[in-house]
């Protein structure tokens, strides 16, 4: 008792100092990470607001607020149409992936059948092939389905990388649902579809939002398939359209417009992540906690 009531002073001061140092270190790291990850985007915004020769001067603070790049990107050429295509493709990919994944996850997690583990591994291994390896095969498929140069080709081909992880993640989540919950619903007279729809789905929301968002981002940013399966300007999606933006003369790269277009296509993603932020965090942690 007695020696605890008189704490040695220098020890306390030192502890304070280390704590301050730790806080400082923490924030220094935060600043570094933020700078590192945000700088490219920040620089794109800066550049998108400049024009003419200002583009080629290196500066780190805004010097001008010239929106002409945005105006030209959004008014001339097929860019608005490309943007719409991207929205269409990404939304369709997310919707179809989630629907198929939820139903598949139900079967893979709640129905006992032979070869279930093997099937699950096969599904996951599909996502391990590099895109370029499946390009030729997919091209044949797209042709066979008569989808060449249509948005359908992209929706079909993007499933190849969105489905494995949506199925996998949702299966993991669904497996963690207590069996008695399903049985209670069965006793209440629910069909398998009603069980998925009315009992599991509301509980899977966080996981669905998270995987859906990741699928959206992948579909939104995909370049190689979009370049290969679509040939005309009107059916292109944004990543390819940006790469194909050309200046007034063939020699000139329109950096300002490219940057303006990039900012325009990134903005929806940022907004979406911010909107769903809380759900995403819940989705990333919910699996480990019993409700």
């Amino acid at each position: 008792m007695s020696d605890r009531s008189t704490p040695p002073r220098p020890n306390l001061a030192m502890r304070r100092a280390t704590r301050a140092l730790k806080t400082l270190g923490f924030w220094a790291l935060v600043v570094f990470v933020v700078l590192f990850s945000v700088f490219p985007f920040y620089y794109a915004i800066l550049t998108s607001l400049e024009s003419g020769s200002a583009l080629f001067e290196v500066n780190y603070l805004p010097t001008s607020l010239d929106v002409s790049n945005y105006v030209s990107v959004l008014t001339k050429g097929p860019f608005p149409l490309n943007f719409l295509n991207s929205v269409l493709v990404a939304v369709a990919v997310v919707a179809i992936s989630l629907f198929l994944a939820v139903t598949a996850a139900f079967a893979l997690s709640r129905v006992r059948f032979r070869g279930r583990g093997l099937l699950l591994l096969t599904i996951l291994s599909v996502s391990m092939f590099p895109q370029i390896a499946v390009l030729a095969g997919l091209f044949e498929m797209v042709r066979a389905f008569d989808l060449y140069n249509s948005l359908g080709s992209l929706i079909l081909s993007y499933m190849i990388f969105t489905l494995p992880f949506t199925v996998w993640v949702l299966t993991t989540f669904m497996r963690d649902m207590p069996a008695e919950l399903e049985e209670a619903a069965i006793v209440d007279g629910a069909t398998p579809f009603q069980i998925v729809w009315k009992v599991f789905l509301p509980l899977l929301w966080p996981a669905m939002v998270t995987t859906g968002l990741l699928a959206f981002i992948q579909a939104w940013n995909e370049f190689l398939f979009a370049l290969t399966f679509v040939a005309s300007n009107e059916t292109r999606t944004v990543p390819v359209a940006i790469a194909m933006l050309s200046g007034s003369s063939g020699q000139e790269v329109p950096w300002g417009e490219i940057m303006a277009a990039s900012v325009v296509v990134t903005a929806p993603l940022v907004v979406m992540v911010l909107v769903f932020q809380r759900k995403i965090v819940a989705g990333l942690t919910a699996g480990g906690v019993k409700g």
Binding site: P178, E180, L181, E183, A184, A185, I186, V187, D188, G189, V199, P202, L203, G291
Partner: peptide, 20 residues
């Protein structure tokens, strides 16, 4: 017959209430 067709109701050990 399914549980609903049999007309049974069950109280589970863990209650199994629908959390949402």
């Amino acid at each position: 017959l399914t549980p609903a067709e049999r007309g049974v109701a069950m109280v589970f050990q863990s209650y199994a209430l629908y959390p949402h």
